[in-house]
C-alpha cells in the first residue's frame, strides 16, 4: 500500500519537479510576440518556472480572430535563472476579406535587471529587445513602409500585490517600448517621415486563486503610416494555469481599425506548454 501511494505521489509531483521551482502563474502567459507577458503586452516576468540556477523551455500557439483578419502565432522560448529569456515566434496575419497574408518572425531576448515580482517592494524590472523580420513585404512596401525588418527595445516593470482587492492578489505591469513598426511590424517598419516613437503599454491582472486570473491590457500604437489609421489595442482575458506545464488564455480583443477596415474586435485564444 505504502509503495503504491509513494508511486502515485511520485507521479503527481514529478511533472511539477521538472517544471522548476517558481510559484505557479509567475512565469506569466506568452504574448503573440512570443515573450512572457499577457496577450499583447510583454511583462518583466521571465517565461516558464525556472528559478535561480534552473532553466526551462516553453512553446505556445495563439490565434486572434477579429472581423476581417486572423493572426496565428506559434513560438518557442527558453529561460534561465529566472533572469534570461529567449523567444522566437512566427506570425501569420491572414487578410480574410482583403485576401492574402502577411507573415513575420519575431526573435526576442529579455533580461531581468532588478526587483522580484513577488518578494520585493521594488517591482521586477526587465529590459528586452525584439528583432522582427517580414516574410511578405510586397503589401507593406506598397503602402509606404520603408523596411522589411526592424527592432524594438522595451523596459517593463511588473509587481504582484498580495491581498490587494477582496483578498485577491493583483498584478500590475507598465511597459515602454521604442518602435518604428506599423501594426506591430506586420505592415513593415520605418518609411518616409516615420520616426522611432516611445509607446506605453499596461496590464492589470487579478489572480482569483493560484490557477485562475482575469486581466486587461492596453497597448498604445504609433499610427505613422499614411495610408490607413492604426489604433491602440485593448483586451480582456481569462487565464487558466492548469498546472506548471499547461495554461490556456481566452480573451476578447479590440484592435481598432486595421488597413482601413474599422472596429476589428474578436476573440483571442492561446495555449502554452512549459517544461
Amino acid at each position: 500500500m505504502k509503495k503504491v501511494l509513494a508511486a502515485l505521489g511520485f507521479l503527481l509531483v514529478s511533472p511539477y519537479l521538472m517544471a522548476g521551482s517558481k510559484v505557479i502563474a509567475t512565469g506569466g502567459a506568452t504574448t503573440i510576440e512570443g515573450n512572457s507577458g499577457g496577450g499583447i503586452v510583454p511583462w518583466a516576468t521571465i517565461n516558464g518556472y525556472s528559478s535561480s540556477d534552473e532553466w526551462s523551455v516553453n512553446s505556445f500557439a495563439g490565434r486572434v480572430g477579429v472581423d476581417d483578419f486572423t493572426l496565428d502565432s506559434l513560438g518557442v522560448g527558453a529561460s534561465f535563472n529566472n533572469q534570461w529569456e529567449l523567444s522566437f515566434a512566427r506570425q501569420k496575419f491572414a487578410l480574410d476579406t482583403i485576401g492574402g497574408e502577411l507573415r513575420q518572425d519575431v526573435l526576442g531576448v529579455k533580461y531581468k535587471v532588478a526587483g522580484e515580482l513577488l518578494y520585493t517592494g521594488l517591482p521586477q524590472i526587465s529590459i528586452g529587445a525584439q528583432f522582427k523580420k517580414n516574410r511578405d513585404f510586397a503589401l507593406p512596401s506598397a503602402v509606404g513602409a520603408g523596411d522589411d525588418s526592424g527592432y524594438e527595445v522595451y523596459v517593463a516593470a511588473t509587481k504582484v500585490f498580495f491581498d490587494a482587492i477582496a483578498g485577491r492578489n493583483l498584478l500590475l505591469n507598465a511597459t515602454i517600448r521604442s518602435t518604428d513598426a506599423h501594426q506591430t511590424g506586420l505592415l513593415g517598419f520605418g518609411g518616409e517621415g516615420v520616426s522611432r516613437k516611445l509607446m506605453f503599454e499596461s496590464s492589470a491582472v487579478l489572480l482569483l486563486n493560484y490557477n485562475l486570473a482575469l486581466g486587461t491590457e492596453f497597448k498604445q500604437k504609433p499610427n505613422q503610416l499614411g495610408f490607413a489609421d492604426e489604433q491602440h489595442w485593448r483586451d480582456l482575458f481569462a487565464a487558466w494555469f492548469i498546472n506548471k506545464n499547461a495554461s490556456v488564455v481566452l480573451g476578447y480583443v479590440d484592435l481598432g481599425d486595421i488597413a482601413g477596415l474599422s472596429d476589428q474586435t474578436g476573440f483571442y485564444l492561446s495555449l502554452e506548454g512549459t517544461w
Binding site: G20, S21, V23, S52, D53, E54, N82, E116, Y119
Partner: peptide, 11 residues
C-alpha cells in the same frame, strides 16, 4: 539560501 530555495519553501 537561493531564490529557488525560497520559491520551493513558498510552494
Amino acid at each position: 539560501i537561493t531564490q529557488a530555495h525560497f520559491d520551493a519553501l513558498v510552494n
